[in-house]
Design a protein around this nucleic acid. Sequence first.
DNA 1: ATTTATTTTTAGACAAACCTAAAAAATAAT
DNA 2: ATTATTTTTTAGGTTTGTCTAAAAATAAAT
Lengths: 219, 219
Amino acid sequence: MNYSVSEENYIKAIYNLNGNKQPVSTNALAETLDTKPASVTDMLKKLKAKKLIVYQPYQGCRLSAEGVKVALNIVRRHRLWEYFLAEKLKFEWNEVHAVAEELEHVSSPKLIERLDEYLGFPRFDPHGDPIPDHEGKMQTLKQVKLTQLPLHTPAKVSGLTDQSTDMLELLRHRRISIGTAVEINRKFGFDHSVEIKIQDNPLFIISEQAAQHILVHHE
Amino acid sequence: MNYSVSEENYIKAIYNLNGNKQPVSTNALAETLDTKPASVTDMLKKLKAKKLIVYQPYQGCRLSAEGVKVALNIVRRHRLWEYFLAEKLKFEWNEVHAVAEELEHVSSPKLIERLDEYLGFPRFDPHGDPIPDHEGKMQTLKQVKLTQLPLHTPAKVSGLTDQSTDMLELLRHRRISIGTAVEINRKFGFDHSVEIKIQDNPLFIISEQAAQHILVHHE
DNA sequence: ATTTATTTTTAGACAAACCTAAAAAATAAT
DNA sequence: ATTATTTTTTAGGTTTGTCTAAAAATAAAT
């Protein structure tokens, strides 16, 4: 029921390499975990013995049903901490990942449930990735670039494809952050800039260059 | 500059056993760390090699100047997380320690500075122990039982000697928590109950039994 | 269909942190 | 001042997770 930091990192890596759907190769894992293929083989045997993965030598590995459950729990912890760091501690969107890598291994279930509650049960992390709930379920809304959002369609900012300092500064200035409700009021054909409405505040215009890098979720 | 979880636990244990002042015995360490004396000896050699402790075989060990610095940093992390858990996530005062034991090993300095700021630079944890600042300095106020607080002396609730459910419920009802400003307005000789003023709110009375278990700090 | 190249696994080692059992030093008791 | 007791250290092993180098299996290329 309780796994080591290493085991958790392998499970998470397999999950992130889509190992709940397709088999993941030993080399791919070694690559993402920054370790050697021989070490990966050792761990795969261990995870197989614990029934967290399905693994036949030379055939790659996939997560078992139980493995997926464990993976979703790790992902949940990771993304909740990312949300906390960005939203409460005002970390930049590009800084949260590294710190969350450490925090995600703190295993108290009560801590995570309370944190979730404290944060107001957020459904997306600062990168726009969905946060699994305590049962492992997560929302799968369409994520599109702001430039592609239809007119007058309520949406929520869910991520960025450019996290440069300049971009972050622009968003801070416009008071746009993760979860901000936006709606496009008008599109200008000339330069493809868009006029947006934020929550119930004043309208304003965003250039195509910027809008291209803002991801939003809508129904 | 960066230490393993085990190393940190040893350093913290030595600090908690007053190892910044008097030598700490191998057995005492084995006891508090729930390990065997032989394992302690191994680690003491390692910590000595890293100049974190002063250690001569058979003579016990003490923290070096550098060791004290490291210890204060761990204690800072621990107590800040305890404060966070109690204040923000509404953990009971007796639940925070175990979870903070895990969180304290997350080593990002920026995380801790931001957390400190987010919490409003608290100076005492939920047990009434002082939280070292980023330089390792901490406040050393007199801690006395509420029954012993002189009349009309502003003080702050800093801890409890009884953390039973009943006690916690009583305090919640009276809206008393860590850091609450209190002042004794009147003492009743008959039953030794005390009339207290909380912040600028209405006066009310607390029995001697309860007041005995409430610790407060004052100048 | 072989040969060549790539991927993966085995075999044997190593460091960290722990253990048990036995030896050595320090302390207490006669 | 010896002897007995307690404390601490050494010696040798175990587990977890890593490594290198060599062997085996799979995939690609002629």
